[in-house]
Design a protein around this nucleic acid. Structure first.
Lengths: 194, 194
DNA sequence: ACCTGAACACCGTTCAAGT
DNA sequence: ACCTGAACACCGTTCAAGT
């Protein structure tokens, strides 16, 4: 397809992996074109062949967070699938605490985020919600889970022992479970408000 | 108290106000020591007399967000006070969309954040929760409200018309109201899980 | 096609000097 | 006490040049 020229010494994937490692160990501020280049043994200008600029680099990094975990097995009951999704996302936040907060500041309409969103919507529809109801529930649910994971990863709860925060999350899971149950069972009068 | 020397041309408050205006109109990236100085008609080095460095400047700015709204009147019923708090915070997010996301990434233990937190805890205790229960409920509630406000301010919902997002928030308010009601009324069996 | 060298406009921050 | 000028080490990014 393409005339070959000189063989590439680094790939776009190398650039992304090096940037991710720097972000994880040194924080977002340490992700610098020069730092990434140094780690790859190359000059900063070489990066621009594989990445259009720094904003593009960060975009790719943040999007990649959403492909780091597998979607829950489709044969699990819907409530377990939702729980699994929430826990996976929380683990990603712990693994990449400096990048993760950016996830809450991006449009929820990229291909990668759609993949996760559709999995959640499918589970919610299987629970008995209509399509529009499911999409609304997914927006609120993802906001809650991302908000908690960002808070935790960024250290907003740093004054509390981990066991307390763990129990906070358990609490959140139970409350969400109850709310969804109430939505699904028709005999509960509250469902009509949605 | 202090030997007077030369009269000051700018104050710390001038620096903060100028920085806030720049952040609101040009985004976080536009907040630069040189940009702030230019707006004040002074050289960048003059700022360091009133602010220890740029991190300190941003800290002060973010903390200031929490003093921009009045706490709800103490004679209102507890549920209206919580609702008022949530709406005030959401308005702050709209006013300062580029600074607001930083709020979710900071320890919730500064004097300014304590002021808001204590108001929420007081309302929750008045609702009938014990002290520890109230603090946990406040952590979760603030996470949910901040998460929603950040999402909104940062444009995560930009693909949906404002009316849909408005109804999302109304939905959130109702669900929270129902959960708190369930917690408070002893005859509901769910309360024991908390 | 891929990488480098040199260059540019910008950062934050310091230090000694002026008033 | 407050501000400035000059300076330093660092940014992101471009462009022409090498292989």
């Amino acid at each position: 397809m393409s005339g070959m020229g000189r063989p590439a010494r680094i790939s776009r994937d190398d650039v992304l992996r090096a940037s991710m490692a720097i972000a994880d160990s040194g924080g977002l501020g340490a992700v610098t074109m020069q730092a990434v280049a140094r780690r790859l043994g190359v000059t900063p200008m070489a990066l621009y062949r594989h990445v259009t600029n720094k904003a593009d680099l960060l975009d790719a990094l943040v999007e990649g967070l959403l492909t780091e975990f597998p979607l829950p097995a489709a044969d699990l009951p819907w409530d377990e699938r939702l729980r699994g999704l929430g826990r996976s996302i929380r683990e990603v936040a712990r693994r990449h605490p400096s990048l993760f907060p950016l996830l809450l500041q991006r449009p929820a309409a990229t291909p990668e985020s759609r993949r996760v969103r559709d999995a959640a919507c499918a589970a919610l529809e299987e629970a008995g919600l209509g399509a529009a109801q499911a999409r609304r529930a997914e927006r609120l649910l993802s906001t809650v889970v991302l908000g908690f994971a960002v808070s935790e990863a960024a250290g907003r709860f740093r004054d509390h022992p981990p066991s307390v925060i763990e129990e906070d999350f358990g609490c959140l899971e139970r409350v969400i479970g109850q709310v969804l149950e109430g939505l699904v069972r028709p005999q509960e009068r509250r469902a009509e408000h949605w």
